[in-house]
Design a protein around this nucleic acid. Structure first.
Lengths: 172, 172
DNA sequence: GGCCTGGTTGAGCATTTTGCTCACTCGAAC
DNA sequence: GTTCGAGTGAGCAAAATGCTCAACCAGGCC
């Protein structure tokens, strides 16, 4: 609710170190970051308590589960029945993420599929969901940038509050 | 490369248990799943070795870092310069994910932003990137289904290979 | 049949980590 | 000055880790 993030620079540093080695022990993190073991332990506890750490299944790759195909389905829905749509889509296992877009009529759906045929079937189920009016399916060809938050973490770790200075934007 | 997933039913059960309690120790998992500690340890090691577990930063929530806004930017790009586009976008911290869509000319970009103004600035940077021809920004209003893989995991854990039987699809 | 191989199991071991508490210090806020 | 929150170093018993070993059972193979 407040303007300051739930994660401060130190937290970000811990998270960053964890990114580097997800199974690092608390002591290992502590002396890598030159913090006391106690501090790391307390902050880590706080982080997972207040939900800064999302669900674990975010870390599991669909491909490893046998769903190598990712597709982006854009659906147009009856905006007044958004809850219904959400429930129906949540009922489809292969639906991995659903975001309601501004305007309210457009819904963005990310799908994991075994193969083209599987995707076809899933797309059909989505289209058949109540209040879904039109869909358009696009196959994900390549992950140009894999899901990441590290750059933002790094920024937070450096104490820079976030809003980049308007000067050195375009540097590469 | 092969058709069978790198994760079998037992692996999936471990992952599932981990979803329930991400910081569970190996012993805890072992006797929860009625497996030997040794097995769990070996499989866990294998899982992170072969990349079934993605990067840790997937678990960090942008909101907690002070980026409560998510936007979906669709960009049309010069398809022959895709690599350039990818590099440019990767250089923007707030760009959280980029996927090249089928057809090749469309690129899907997920962005985390501090506020509307911040988003506006980022959208500008994206449009200014080389080989980007047109963009359209949509604000994410609500996570109708938060990123998840649990249903697929659960399916894998039950030994069901994945391809759902065509019978009981529509049950709610 | 006999012979592998791979995965699972239970046991054991020394070492490390955990979870927790305590007292102390430091800086900022009141 | 004092109070508050946060970090620190220390200490402790209990538990987990990483590792190795031998045994077992399934399957496939000759």
């Amino acid at each position: 609710m407040s303007n300051k993030p739930a994660v401060d620079a130190t937290d970000a540093r811990i998270l960053l170190a964890l990114t580097d080695d997800p199974r690092a022990t608390v002591v290992a993190l502590a002396d890598r970051l030159r913090l006391s073991r106690n501090t790391v332990q307390a902050r880590l506890a706080k982080l997972e308590h207040n939900g800064a750490l999302g669900a674990f299944d975010r870390r599991v790759s669909p491909a490893a589960l046998g769903y190598p195909l990712t597709a982006i389905v854009t659906a147009q829905v009856d905006q007044r029945r958004l809850a219904e749509v959400a429930a129906a889509l949540a009922g489809i296992d292969e639906v991995v993420e659903v975001i309601g877009l501004s305007g309210g009529a457009d819904v963005f759906i990310k799908v994991a599929a075994r193969d083209a045929e599987d995707l076809y079937r899933i797309a059909g189920r989505i289209l058949a969901a109540p209040a879904v009016e039109r869909t358009s399916t696009a196959l994900a060809m390549q992950q140009l940038v894999p899901e990441r938050l590290t750059p933002l973490l790094r920024r937070a770790a450096q104490g820079r509050p976030g809003r980049a200075e308007e000067g050195q934007e375009e540097q590469e």
